[in-house]
Amino acid sequence: MPHFLIHKPYGYLSQFAGEAKKKKLGEFHNFPEGIMAIGRLDEDSEGLLLLTTDGRMSERVRSRKVEKEYYCQVDGLMTNEAIALLQAGVEIGIHGVKYQTSPCAARRLNPPPAFAPRTRKIRDDRHGPTSWVSITLTEGKYRQIRKMTAAVGFPTLRLVRVRVAGIWLGDLAAGEVREVADFGL
């Protein structure tokens, strides 16, 4: 069964059909019939997305046994206290219902990652400092990381998934697709 890695760029949906005016992943490659994204990245998020035609593989990757790591640029200089709160789990809202996130791994990234500039500028430096954090989860609720960083006082400005299990984004450029024989899971 064919499997693919793609670096989903900012501004694209994690789907192949649907809203006519939205940019979709099918623009990057002639994917086989029945291809699906394993998990999702919202339109404003970037990074590693796994694609497959294997429904069982999709279920395995989306399970709570598989880590997903994100690099997150936040507004302000993330404090040790905020990192500790993220690590312990925070209360967020999911579709109007309170939800306590599971404990996770979180750490500041210094130096910041060397990603190419986003196609749409995030903001001006005159609006104050930003910082980068790594957050590793095994769950994936709706806009969870954005809600977690906001809950500890540091809204997300840019979000990039860099790893799923042992598969890394590495040097895959935005929009680049790589076919792989196996995800190794």
Rank of each mutant, 00 (worst) to 15 (best):
G170C: 05
L13M: 09
S14V: 07
I6E: 07
G76V: 01
T79S: 01
T130D: 12
H95D: 15
R143H: 11
V162D: 00
M148K: 04
G153V: 03
Y99P: 10
R56S: 14
P117D: 09
T53S: 14
S131C: 12
A84N: 08
W132L: 01
Y12G: 03
E81L: 08
G93M: 14
L169D: 01
G26T: 13
S102D: 14
M36L: 10
I167R: 05
M36Y: 08
F16W: 01
A84C: 11
L77S: 11
P117I: 13
N80H: 09
R118N: 07
A88N: 13
M57T: 05
P111C: 05
A106W: 01
D182G: 12
A105Y: 07
L50E: 09
T130K: 11
A17L: 08
Y12S: 02
A174W: 15
G96Q: 07
Y12N: 10
V61C: 14
I35E: 03
A88L: 01
P32N: 06
L77I: 03
K121F: 00
S63F: 04
G96F: 04
R146D: 05
G184M: 11
R158D: 03
A106V: 03
K121C: 13
Q100L: 15
E81T: 06
L137V: 11
K23F: 07
Q87T: 04
F16A: 13
I167P: 04
E81F: 03
E179H: 03
R108K: 14
N30C: 05
A88T: 01
A150K: 12
A82M: 00
L85N: 06
A17N: 14
D54L: 09
R161N: 01
E69A: 02
I83C: 04
I6Y: 00
L159D: 05
M148R: 00
L185M: 11
R123T: 10
I122Q: 15
G76Q: 05
E81W: 06
D125S: 09
G140D: 13
K98F: 12
R118K: 14
G26S: 12
K23Q: 04
F115A: 08
P112Q: 00
R108S: 03
S134C: 07
Y99F: 12
A20M: 12
E81M: 09
D54Q: 10
V180T: 11
T52Y: 06
Q15W: 02
W132G: 02
F183M: 11
E91K: 07
